[in-house]
């Protein structure tokens, strides 16, 4: 897919997430632009995961979440995904008992032919997975599972990728591979939002860095953050 205008930006306005009585995210505003990697950095417990989960609909929230001109905030999870959001959760969460191929296909669109094409594309981006396509996902190493999780998100050809701590627990060499694949997806025009506490990684891959502290998005500090 060529970088094109029809890909939508993700826009968040006044988003608040509560866990029990605790405010995890307070009145957050954020924009993830097409063709760019936006990194959401912050310490553990700052609210990064809660923010991403709220965008997908896995956590209840108040406020506006829109994709292009479409407001997603009232939609159930499935509808948000179909609107063009893909989510790569913390801890990968591949389906352990499905094969690598099935893990990818299950996330694909209806239409067998289209699914096959997308499968090929995912395997092109992550060639390490190709020889293991018949293996069960639990047999993969942590790094390979991370690639599978990203590949799975790619199957829906979303406008927006949400990735929660994609480098957690990965060896430095694998982190480089992950960074490379994210860059490629951005170049193809997708909007990418990465929650990350590895500031080094964020600095390396991000076009834009947004800092979140105790549930609040910090005022714009264009360019690089201090590490």
């Amino acid at each position: 897919m060529s970088p094109s205008q029809h890909i939508n930006a993700l826009q968040i306005e006044g988003l608040t997430v509560r866990h029990g009585g605790v405010v995890a995210v307070a009145d957050a505003a954020l924009r993830a632009a097409p063709g760019a990697i936006t990194c959401l950095v912050g310490m553990n417990g700052a609210g990064k995961s809660s923010l991403l989960r709220a965008i997908v609909g896995l956590a209840a929230s108040e406020g506006d979440i829109s994709l292009g001109t479409r407001n997603l905030s009232r939609l159930p999870i499935e509808a948000r995904i179909h609107a063009g959001i893909a989510y790569v959760p913390e801890g990968r969460r591949v389906f352990p008992g499905l094969t690598v191929g099935e893990n990818l296909l299950v996330a694909g669109p209806s239409g067998a032919r289209l699914r096959r094409q997308r499968l090929d594309r995912a395997l092109d981006l992550f060639p390490q997975l190709r020889p293991r396509i018949q293996d069960r996902a639990w047999q993969l190493s942590g790094g390979q599972q991370q690639m599978l999780a990203i590949g799975r998100a790619l199957m829906a050809e979303p406008d927006v990728y949400l990735l929660d701590e994609p480098t957690l627990g990965l060896a430095p060499q694998i982190i480089d591979d992950v960074a490379g694949s994210l860059r490629q997806l951005a170049e193809e025009g997708a909007a990418i939002l990465v929650a990350e506490q590895n500031a080094g990684f964020a600095e390396r891959v991000a076009d834009e860095i947004v800092t979140i502290q105790t549930g609040r998005i910090m005022p714009d500090r264009p360019g690089r953050i201090d590490t």
């Binding site: 896995l58 999870i77 499935e78 995904i81 179909h82 959760p89 389906f95 008992g97 499905l98 299950v106």
Partner: peptide
């Protein structure tokens, strides 16, 4: 495949758009 994905991780299955 959707059947089996739901069995293994229902929340993740939803997050992939499976109803």
């Amino acid at each position: 495949r959707q059947f089996r994905a739901c069995a293994q991780d229902p929340e993740m299955a939803r997050a992939l758009g499976i109803r």
